[in-house]
């Protein structure tokens, strides 16, 4: 393969990649719900989630560790909710460490989880399989 063709394909791919990256950076979530964290508390909560490495054991949208449950919808799942989640975060369990968080920190984490909950569903249980191997789901209103 001559060098100029190699260069053409290579740089062509790089250009496409840059365009694709820009499009991804500008894209927002599907559906009507904006996924922007509006309150300061939720924003703090997100950073606390990182600082305590909650992802080592928990997933959001199926991404993260495997020891604990997926937390995407812990706020809205039947039988769970804010005070349920709050008591886990505050005291830990035999398997989940107690991080000795202050009440403000617990509230921040809950505010964050509340915002996450509004963006969608995980795991997805309601779906139709399409002929091309893709699935169709109802997005959260």
């Amino acid at each position: 393969m001559p060098l100029h063709i190699k260069r053409f394909i290579f740089w062509g791919l790089v250009m496409l990649f840059l365009l694709d990256s820009a499009a991804v950076y500008l894209s927002d979530s599907q559906g009507k719900v904006s996924s922007t964290l509006l309150t300061q508390s939720a924003r703090d909560g997100k950073l606390l989630f990182q600082e305590h490495n909650c992802t080592a054991c928990h997933q959001l949208y199926g991404l993260g560790g495997y020891m604990g449950p997926d937390l995407t919808n812990v706020i809205s799942q039947p039988g769970k909710g804010e005070s349920y989640a709050g008591s886990f975060i505050k005291y830990g369990t035999a398997r989940m460490p107690d991080f000795h968080l202050t009440d403000t920190e617990v509230d921040a984490l809950l505010a964050y989880l509340k915002s996450v909950d509004k963006t969608g569903n995980s795991p997805i249980r309601d779906f139709d399989i399409q002929y091309d191997g893709t699935i169709r789901t109802a997005s959260k209103e």
């Binding site: 990256s21 991804v24 950076y25 894209s27 927002d28 979530s29 996924s35 922007t36 964290l37 924003r43 997100k46 959001l60 949208y61 991404l63 915002s115 996450v116 963006t119 969608g120």
Partner: peptide, 21 residues
């Protein structure tokens, strides 16, 4: 490390998308 910018960090879905990209 784009999450260091609030534009990414404060949008849950965008941030997750860029993170896994």
């Amino acid at each position: 490390y784009l999450w260091l910018f609030p534009y990414f960090r404060n949008n849950i879905v965008r941030d997750l998308t860029v993170q896994w990209k």
